[in-house]
Structure formats: C-alpha cells, structure tokens
Design a protein around this nucleic acid. Structure first.
Lengths: 194, 194
DNA sequence: ACGCCTATCTATACGATGTATAGAACGGAG
DNA sequence: CTCCGTTCTATACATCGTATAGATAGGCGT
C-alpha cells in the first residue's frame, strides 16, 4: 500500500485537502504545510503546481466562487415566492452562513492573486450574476443609468455588509432581540425592506 | 542617551508604534516583534502589559474605535447639507478609506478579544452611534419597531458592505465607469438612494 | 536608611510557518 | 535504452508567537 512517488493528480488532492481544512478548522488553520500533511506529501510538493501560498489559496477561492455562483444561479432561476433580487440576497447570505471560512477567503483579497485566470474569471462571473439580478437598462444594457448603477451597488453592499457583520458576530445582539427571534432570514428581509 | 531599563510608559509607546506600523505597512506587518522593535524594546516586553498578541491588537482596535466614534459624532453633530443618516454613512466610508488597515483590524474579530473592557466599550459605543442616526421609535425608544430595526440594520449593512467592497477593490471596475468617474462619494450617494 | 518584593524588561529556547535550494525518483521523447 | 524535464523529498533559513528563567529597578514596610 505504498503510495507511488508520483501522486497522479496532486493538485486536485491538495485542493480537496485545503477545502476540508478550511471547512473544519477555519481560515487561520489553512496553511501550506497543513494541506501537504493532510494530502500525505512533503510540504514542498505543492510548489510545482501552485507556486506559493497565494497560488493555492487563489485556486481554492476560485472553486469557492464556482459554488457561490451555482448558488446564486439556482436562486435566480428558482426564486420561489420571492423576487429575484431578494432571492439572490438570501442565497448570498445563506452561502456566507454555510461556508463562512470560504466566504472570508473569497472576500479577503490580500492573500489572493486575482491575476490567476481561474480566480479572475470566477470572481467576474459572480459580479455579473449579482448585477444581472437587477432590472437592466432598456435602451443600452451595457451602459447602465446612474440609478441602475446605484441600485446594483446598493443591493450588493447591503447583502455583503449584512453577511460580513453576521459572520463577524456583530449582529448577534440584534438577532437575540424578540423582533426577529434569532431568525436570520427574517432580519435580512427587514433590512432589505428599508 | 542610554534608555533606562524601565521605559516609563511602555504601553502607550507600544500602541503608538503599533499604530504607525498599521498605517504605514498594513495589517499583515503588524506583528508583536515588529512593534517591540519599533519601540526599541525586546520582543517580550509587551507581554506584561498586553499579554499576548490579541491583547495588543484589541487595545489598538479600541483606540481605532475611539477615532471612529469621534468621526461619526462629528458627522452627526454637523451633518452640513446632508441628512444625519447620510452624513453618518459618508463619515463611515471616509474613515474606512482614510484608515483601511485600522478598519479591517476593527472588523476582523478573529484576532480580537472583545472580553477586554476598553474594546467592548468602544465597539458598543460605535453601534450606539450608528443606531442613533435613525429615527427613534417614539413610543418605546428601547424596544424598536421591526421597521426601525430593519432600517437600522439595513443602513449599517449598506454602509459596511460598501466600505468593505471598496477597501477590497471590488468596486474599482464600477468606479472607473463614466457615471461616477472615480468619485466615491457620488457612488455612495447613488447606492444609498436605492 | 535599608532590605526585600513585585512589576518590568531581557535573554534564550522551542515549535510552527513560508520559502529557497539541492537532490532523488519517475515518465516520456528521441 | 538513454537522456531530460517534471514531480516530489530533504534540508536549511528567517520570521513569527509564546513559554521560561534571569536581570533590573522602583516602591513599601520596617
């Protein structure tokens, strides 16, 4: 049962290990050496595939954006009883709640390299999906009116800020209030209604 | 010109050095050893005063919240041509733009210890100021109506999300568009108008 | 005035991390 | 079959946070 010298598909195995560590132990535990340990290789094995740490984190974040985009797409295709923008907002917050560490990794650009094609494409697709959920400018869809632009940025900002504050525990006190009774979706609806 | 063995007021000197490093070199450069180096003491000198790293970061964040609260207060007392909530929003974003590293430190609770009285008090005062900028519930100011609660959380979320996305560079593409022409305040006004 | 006691600061050590480098093992091209 | 580049290992180094032990100084009781 000796592992062969060449792994076969080490990049995929490393990304899988990184994802597991990120989910189970959080962002601070996501180190290069820990990933290599979990994948059962030496701590310098990732180098030929990902370069340095930011390389691995960026590829992992690209995968995260892929899942994120899937979530947004599904919410927009099947908004249920909600409007499309509201459904998108709930999907956004739900992703941040389900995968908080991944969400933080994705929106913490300091350790990420957006020069990587995979990450750049996935992140661009995410913003495209977020902008799509808004009523387009009829005359020229490529050049949105200031009002449309403001609505897009405003919508994104509310949802992103809500998710960030929520993950950071800043809304815990408010969530405990009897008005929402710990119901995050209800509080989000209240916030969106303003 | 030999420095005495006992510094005199090492805690203040360390916090000053930490603030300088944070401003000039950013959050990742803010290490315990770097702070001690800049203050001219051994790297274990901070321990008796701040305990571990999170202690020093928390006290520095408390100072940051103090400046932040001053900014908010001044905007609310002298809103100028803007409404009080809008002036508060602009002050919020202006602080994040002027001191991005400090802003990130303050809203990155993972390395902070909110058990520290100074930090807990300063952060609580910040949320109080943010909630104050909204029309209070006339009948029972302590128990806000759901609509008021929603408006408070919504307002905070937009502004926080806008600031976070801005600092992270996520709005750079939109800012370059001709509608706002790089004017952050204008884009914020558009976002708030939605 | 004197001696101890505690807080403060230094020196040293240890494990962990990211990265650079050199060398070993493999796989495919000629 | 040989060579060569890719992949992986082994080792080394600087840096970080922290634990521990020892040096220094200021304050307090006597």
């Amino acid at each position: 049962m000796k592992r062969p010298y060449h792994h076969g598909d080490l990049p995929a195995a490393l990304l899988r290990a990184a994802g597991e560590i990120l989910r189970s132990e959080g962002l601070p535990a996501l180190t290069l050496r820990a990933v290599a340990r979990r994948a059962g290789v030496s701590h310098m094995a990732p180098a030929p595939h990902f370069g340095d740490l930011s390389g691995l984190l960026s590829e992992l974040a690209a995968i995260g954006y892929g899942l994120f985009n899937d979530t947004l797409r599904q919410a927009q295709d099947h908004p249920g009883h909600r409007s499309v923008p509201t459904a998108t907002a709930h999907a956004y917050v739900a992703f941040a709640r389900t995968e908080p560490a991944m969400f933080l990794l994705m929106f913490r650009s300091e350790r990420l390299d957006f020069g990587r094609p995979a990450l750049a494409a996935a992140a661009a697709e995410a913003t495209r999906l977020l902008m799509r959920s808004l009523p387009a400018n009829a005359s020229k869809p490529d050049v949105p009116s200031p009002a449309t632009l403001g609505r897009a940025v405003g919508q994104w900002s509310v949802v992103h800020g809500f998710a960030m504050l929520l993950i950071d525990g800043r809304l815990d006190g408010i969530l405990a209030a009897p008005e929402c009774d710990g119901d995050v979706d209800r509080l989000l609806d209240l916030a969106l209604a303003s």
